[in-house]
Write a protein that binds this DNA or RNA. Structure first.
Lengths: 241, 241
DNA sequence: TGTTTTTTGTGTCATATTTACACACCGACA
DNA sequence: TGTCGGTGTGTAAATATGACACAAAAAACA
C-alpha cells in the first residue's frame, strides 16, 4: 500500500475513473450488470456504501494504457468478467464538480455488449448481479444518468454496427434477433418485413445442424456473416430499421 | 502563482484538459480555429512550442463546474471567442499513456459550431487563426486525430441535429445550406431534390425583407424555423440526406 | 453597351423502397 | 383429437427517391 501523500503536484489534479455499463440479453429483455458498493475494498473511505452501482474504478496512472484498459481491469476485479479493452465503447465523460462527495472525480463511461449465456457463469455472484434494464434500482453517484446515456448510445449505434449479433449467441433465430432489436429500439416491427430486410442485407447465414426442420414452428437457425457485413460496411451503408 | 508541490494525493492523479474543435463556415468551406502553442503562458514548461494546436487547457479542479466549462474558459482565454459551455458537444476522451511527454494528461475533446461571420471579429488574430478544414497543418499532441474524430462526429450528428443552421448566418439561402451539407457530408446533391426534401421538412421559413425578388438568379432568403424543428424532433425523426 | 456565362427556381415521371397484410404448417398442450 | 400459438412465405399499394430540362436574370466579359 502506498504511503499517504506521496504524490504531489503544482496544481490540483482530479481523480479519474472508468465506469462500465455491461449489457447482456437473455432472449427476452436487455440486462445490465451491477455491483453492490462496499463489499470489497476498505469500505471506510467509500461513498454510497451498500448501494448498487456500475462496475468501475480509478485509473492506474502508471499502468493503464487508456481509460478503456481501466474499464476492463476494474470490470474483471469487480465482477470476474474478462473483456478486452477493445470491447468498450465510450459513452461520455461525467465531470460535474459535485458528482463525488469526497474529492473531484471525473469518470469516463463506457458500454460493452456480451453474450449473456456465455458469460453468466463467469460473473462473480457474490459481488455482481444482472438486472433487467427496466428493473434497475436507483444507483450511486450519477450512475442513473450514465446508464440512461449508455442505453441511448446503444440505441444510436445499432444503426451503424451489428450490435444485435454481439448480444446474441453465435447461433440464433430470426424471432430472437427481432425481439432484441425491438427491445433496444423500443418499437415493434412487422415480422415479415423484418425478415425481408434482414435477408436483403445478406448478413445472415442459415446454420445447417443436420436435423431437417420438422415444420415451420421450429425457427430456422442463423449465424452472423461477419465477412459479408465487413464488405457491406466498407462500401458505406447503414442498417435501417 | 501556486507554490510548487502544494497538492498531494495518496495515489498518482492524471492532469485533465479540455480541447475545443471550433468549426465555422465561410460560405464555401468548413473552417477550424487553431492556436499556435507557446505564444502565451510561460513557454519553458511547454511541449510542442511553436506548433499549431487545438485551443484547450487544464481543468481548474476547484472552479470549473464541468470539463465543458473548462473548454469554454480556455477558448475564451486563448482565442477571445466567448461561447457558453452548453455549446460544446463531446467528441471523446483521449487518454493514451504516452500522449503527452511531460506527465499523464487525459483530454476530453469537444466541438462547437459558430457563425463565422459573427465571431470572426472576436477572434484574437495574434493568437488564433481560422484554417480551411482541408488545409490544416500537422498539429501538436494527438490533435490531428482529435480533429478527424470531431469531424466524423459532426458528420454523424448532422443526421440528428440541425447543425447546418448553427453554422450559417440567421438568414441564408438554399444554395448556401446545400453547399454546407455537401461540405460536411462530402457528397453532392441534386439541387432540385435537395430543395424538395428541405421544403418537405418544413423547417425553413422564407424571409421577406421587403425587396421584391427581381429574378430567379437572386436566391430566396430563409430563416431556420426552430419551432417547427422542435416539434418534428419531439415526434422522433431523422434528417435524411 | 451588347453578348455570353453562370446561377437560381420550379415539377414530373420512372424506379426503388417501405409498409400493410393473410394463409398454411405443425408443434405444444389440453 | 382438437385447439392454440408461433413460424415461414409473397404480393400489392403507398411512399420516397432519383433523374432530368428550361426559363429568367444577374454577373462576367468583350
Amino acid at each position: 500500500m502506498a504511503k499517504k501523500g506521496q504524490y504531489t503536484y503544482e496544481y490540483p489534479h482530479p481523480a479519474v475513473t472508468a465506469d462500465c455499463v455491461v449489457f447482456g440479453y437473455d432472449g427476452k429483455e436487455l440486462k445490465v450488470l451491477l455491483i453492490r458498493r462496499g463489499l470489497e475494498k476498505e469500505a471506510s473511505t467509500m461513498a454510497y456504501v451498500g448501494e448498487w452501482a456500475l462496475p468501475g474504478g480509478f485509473l492506474d496512472v502508471e499502468k493503464d494504457r487508456t481509460v478503456a484498459h481501466t474499464a476492463a481491469r476494474e470490470l474483471k476485479e469487480e465482477t470476474g468478467l474478462k473483456l478486452s479493452y477493445r470491447e468498450f465503447r465510450e459513452v461520455g465523460t461525467y465531470s460535474d464538480i459535485k458528482r463525488d462527495p469526497r474529492e473531484r472525480v471525473i469518470t469516463v463511461a463506457h458500454y460493452a455488449l456480451v453474450k449473456l449465456a456465455e458469460v453468466q457463469a463467469d460473473t462473480d455472484a457474490d459481488k455482481a448481479e444482472w438486472f433487467a434494464f427496466g428493473d434497475v434500482p436507483s444507483l450511486a453517484f450519477d450512475h442513473d444518468k450514465i446508464l440512461r446515456d449508455a442505453f441511448s448510445r446503444l440505441k444510436q449505434n445499432i444503426h451503424f454496427e451489428p450490435v444485435g449479433f454481439e448480444l446474441l449467441p453465435e447461433v440464433f433465430t430470426l424471432p430472437q434477433l427481432q425481439n432484441l432489436y425491438e427491445s433496444i429500439l423500443e418499437v415493434k416491427f412487422d415480422r415479415r418485413n423484418f425478415a425481408n430486410k434482414m435477408k436483403h442485407y445478406e448478413i445472415l447465414s442459415e446454420v445447417d445442424d443436420g436435423t431437417p426442420r420438422r415444420g415451420t414452428r421450429t425457427p430456422i437457425k442463423y449465424r452472423f456473416d461477419r465477412e459479408n457485413y465487413d464488405r457491406l460496411k466498407r462500401s458505406g451503408f447503414q442498417l435501417e430499421f
